[in-house]
């Protein structure tokens, strides 16, 4: 950029100079990304080494790795990780089963398929808050529909959220209801990509249904299934909204996922630095899972090409 051109066209001409046009076009996005994401990320990382409490005016002092040590040696943290693992495992498994069955159904042509498909996809387009409120009302033991139906078959009142197991099941069902259609979409993409001539050849060879599925269908969808598992594991691992609305982590702390535990530490106990340390441990786990996800995506691309 020469002084001459700057003086001729002013800032507009300087900014639109072909040499820097690309940089100028991405600059706003980079600035927003830095201000909204990178800076807070670095700031909270710094906080995790101090004893800062957002509710206190006291000047924080440097504590080194003690917050990480306290978080990792706190048995509550591990209890919350276990709860999260149970919910993630159950929910992702249920999503896979339901999503897979739905995909098998929609891989075939039947009347009003498009309309039914659209209806089945609706849950994943709803907000978490709406889904949480729906299911909280469904499970309400006095007038909720789930209790109403179950009471027809039971002598005692059915109270879905009255026990730790029931409450976990309630959350898993709500999450699976919302996200099974997503798994279905991925599997369906795999199913429709299977060349028809393979099925025709298998039919000529009189291969069994299981043989057709295992040797023709499954190889086409396995990498997409892996993607679905990883993506849903990452998302369910961070599950907050539905849990907080349906059970608030209760009864007691039996459904308190690591995300709810983190929120309560940060915004109810105001243990800001310790929460930041826990958040970075969670972030580390999510990064590991994301790398596995990216590895799976790359493998899928290699298979396709």
């Amino acid at each position: 950029m020469s002084e001459t051109s700057a003086s001729k066209g002013g800032f507009g001409a300087w900014a639109l100079d072909p040499k820097r046009r690309g940089a100028m076009l991405v600059a706003p996005a980079l600035i927003i990304l830095f201000v909204m994401n990178i800076f807070p990320l670095l700031w909270s990382f710094g906080l995790s080494f101090f004893n800062y409490k957002a509710s206190s005016p006291r000047v924080p002092s440097f504590r080194g790795l003690s917050n990480y040590e306290r978080v990792l040696t706190d048995e509550k943290t591990w209890e919350r990780f276990q709860t999260t693992a149970v919910i993630v495992g159950s929910s992702v498994l249920l999503q896979l089963i339901v999503g897979f069955l739905l995909a098998l159904m929609f891989a075939k042509v039947f009347p009003m398929r498009r309309i039914v498909l659209m209806l089945v996809l609706t849950p994943m387009m709803l907000s978490f808050v709406s889904v949480g409120v729906f299911f909280k009302l469904f499970y309400e033991p006095t007038f909720g529909i789930v209790s109403y139906v179950m009471n027809i078959f039971m002598t005692d009142k059915f109270v879905m959220l009255g026990s730790p197991g029931g409450a976990i099941a309630g959350i898993v069902i709500a999450d699976a209801w919302m996200w099974s259609p997503f798994v279905m979409l991925l599997v369906l993409a795999g199913l429709v990509s299977v060349p028809k001539y393979l099925y025709e050849a298998a039919e000529i060879d009189r291969a069994s249904s299981w043989r057709i599925f295992w040797t023709i269908t499954f190889p086409y969808i396995k990498s997409l299934l892996l993607l679905a598992i990883l993506f849903r594991t990452i998302e369910t691992f961070k599950l907050f909204d539905i849990v907080y609305i349906i059970t608030e982590g209760g009864p007691g702390s039996s459904t308190e996922t690591i995300a709810v535990f983190l929120y309560r530490n940060a915004f109810q106990f105001f243990q800001t630095s310790r929460s930041a340390a826990l958040a970075y441990i969670v972030l580390f786990i999510v990064i590991v899972l994301t790398n596995l996800y990216l590895y799976a995506v790359n493998r899928r691309e290699e298979e396709v090409t």
Binding site: P141, T142, G162, E248, G250
Partner: peptide, 9 residues
């Protein structure tokens, strides 16, 4: 009390 008492809600 109503059974919602058993849920802590």
């Amino acid at each position: 009390m109503p059974p919602v008492a058993q849920t802590g809600q």
